[in-house]
């Protein structure tokens, strides 16, 4: 029987959640026994090769490409996990949500105290995905099945959640594994 497939992506995140996944140490060998990875930075597969059992999303949606990828995950994955604080509540990128987009760009590229930009250029290559008006937690864009909070969620949290889901068991995390920092 073919192994269930897992896909992962980092949207508006810092890859910390992916690092945490790698932090499961030697259990990664067990994980490889349990699953195959499809689209994921772990194996550098860029597009889905087919339907997946589990999708793990790090980061919220700050630009249009994030939305496209997240919807793609929703289409291909039976179970979608919002992994980490950015995915579940927007995280640090969402701090811009109370500031108009233009002010954010001006601060980042023109007025910030460490900015050197004598030609006053705002990045605007036609291939650059456009920013959204604010950062959206994943559940505001697609339906999410499970939430793993943490910045990042600990390796144990990720491991326990994955093992439970792969065994068709409910994800029940003990006190020490639900943390928001």
């Amino acid at each position: 029987m073919a192994k269930p497939k897992v896909a992962t992506a980092s949207l508006a995140g810092c890859f910390g959640c992916h690092m945490s996944l790698l932090d499961i140490d030697d259990r990664i060998l067990k994980l490889i026994d349990l699953v195959d990875f499809d689209k994921s930075p772990v194996d550098d597969i860029k597009e889905f090769t087919g339907p997946c059992r589990i999708g793990i999303i790090e980061g919220g949606c700050c630009n249009e490409e994030n939305v496209r990828v997240l919807r793609d995950f929703r289409k291909h994955c039976d179970i979608l996990i919002a992994c980490g604080d950015c995915a579940t509540m927007g995280g640090i990128p969402a701090m811009r949500n109370t500031i108009p987009l233009k002010e954010c760009l001006d601060e980042a590229y023109l007025n910030g105290p460490t900015v050197y930009n004598p030609q006053k250029i705002l990045p605007n290559d036609k291939e650059l995905p456009l920013l959204l008006n604010r950062v959206y937690p994943c559940q505001e864009v697609v339906k999410i099945d499970y939430f793993l909070p943490g910045c990042p969620p600990s390796a144990d949290t990720l491991w326990q959640a994955l093992v439970a889901l792969l065994g068709d068991k409910p994800v029940e995390l003990p006190y020490e594994l639900i943390k928001y920092d």
């Binding site: 995280g91 640090i92 701090m95 939430f147 995390l173 920092d181």
Partner: peptide, 24 residues
């Protein structure tokens, strides 16, 4: 933003959410 809040770990709101098992 618990991830950088000075009170994280000692915060009563956060602790209450932990006690009640709130993931999000």
């Amino acid at each position: 933003y618990c991830m950088f809040c000075e009170k994280s770990g000692n915060c009563e709101l956060q602790a209450m959410a932990y006690r009640l098992g709130i993931a999000t």
